[in-house]
């Protein structure tokens, strides 16, 4: 059913810390690894070892350079996957009902056996979170690892999305953003978490934490150490002076 629920019981989603992300792409790899062999059709590659490799990914890491008016440029690594929007435009455009938003946890999913591969949902998404798989002809998107987070066959620490579980920097957090007392909600409050493209009116559930201000050279605590001596001393100093006195030396 492509009518969006007016309210979901929980708003499960990710909080991504742009200050902490080191841009290692481990989340990209673990996402592809888990999702190519679990929920739904595999994530195919076209010509992966050829001259023009291409493939389906549910999570991609961009890198941006922020250049302030004065000061040094800053590099920000920027992972992007489905934001599980409250007003998900991808869901309402779907003609078959393959796309839906779950009432119980707010996860946006695709029922692949109903998908006709028209691609309209990918057009409707401003974030580029949906990709039509070239081999299967169905729409693929982040499932928030719906087959991990409720999976009692996995040890408890593994019941989080694969990208969160694998992040070596601790830049990805998973939880209920509808609960103001949850760890992720408090993190968003404390760090000033923000929405991507708020003007598009999608009300994304996933939040991003801004990079913290970086130290600047003029603000560094201690001045550079004063030089102890300008002239070399000791044995090497004597050698330097002695060699200079020989013919052809500096005089």
């Amino acid at each position: 059913m492509t009518q969006l629920p007016t309210e979901t019981d929980r708003k499960m989603g990710l909080v991504i810390d742009l200050d902490t992300c080191v841009g290692c792409h481990a989340c990209v790899i673990s996402c592809k690894g888990w999702n190519t062999e679990n929920y739904g059709a595999p994530l195919s590659d076209q010509s992966p070892y050829g001259a023009d490799p291409s493939g389906t990914f549910l999570n991609r890491v961009h890198s941006y350079e922020v250049q302030p008016e004065d000061g040094l440029a800053q590099l920000v690594h920027f992972p992007k996957s489905c934001l599980h929007c409250e007003d998900a435009p991808c869901v309402t455009v779907c003609p078959t009902g393959a796309s839906y938003k779950r009432v119980e946890d707010g996860i946006v999913l695709v029922n692949e056996s109903d998908c006709i591969g028209c691609g309209l949902c990918a057009w409707a998404c401003p974030y580029g979170a949906r990709e039509l798989d070239a081999a299967e002809g169905v729409m693929k998107k982040c499932t928030l690892c719906v087959d991990r987070i409720y999976n009692n066959n996995l040890p408890e620490e593994d019941r989080v999305p694969a990208c969160v579980r694998t992040c070596p920097a601790g830049a990805r957090h998973f939880g209920d953003l509808g609960d103001p007392d949850s760890d992720v909600s408090r993190l968003v409050d404390a760090r000033g978490g923000f929405d991507l493209m708020p003007e598009q009116g999608t009300k994304p559930v996933n939040k991003y934490l801004p990079p913290r201000p970086k130290d600047r050279l003029e603000q560094a605590g201690a001045a550079p150490l004063a030089p102890v001596t300008e002239e070399p001393g000791g044995f090497l100093g004597w050698l330097d002076r002695a060699l200079d006195r020989l013919p052809g030396g500096r005089h």
Binding site: L18, H62, S63, Y64, E65, V66, Q67, P68, E69, A73, Q74, L75, V76, F78, F194, D195, L196, M197, P198, E199, Y208, P210, P211, P213
Partner: peptide
């Protein structure tokens, strides 16, 4: 607005 990155000009690196 797409990246939410403030404090300078944003360039795709």
């Amino acid at each position: 607005s797409a990246t939410g990155l403030r404090g300078g000009a944003v360039r795709a690196f």
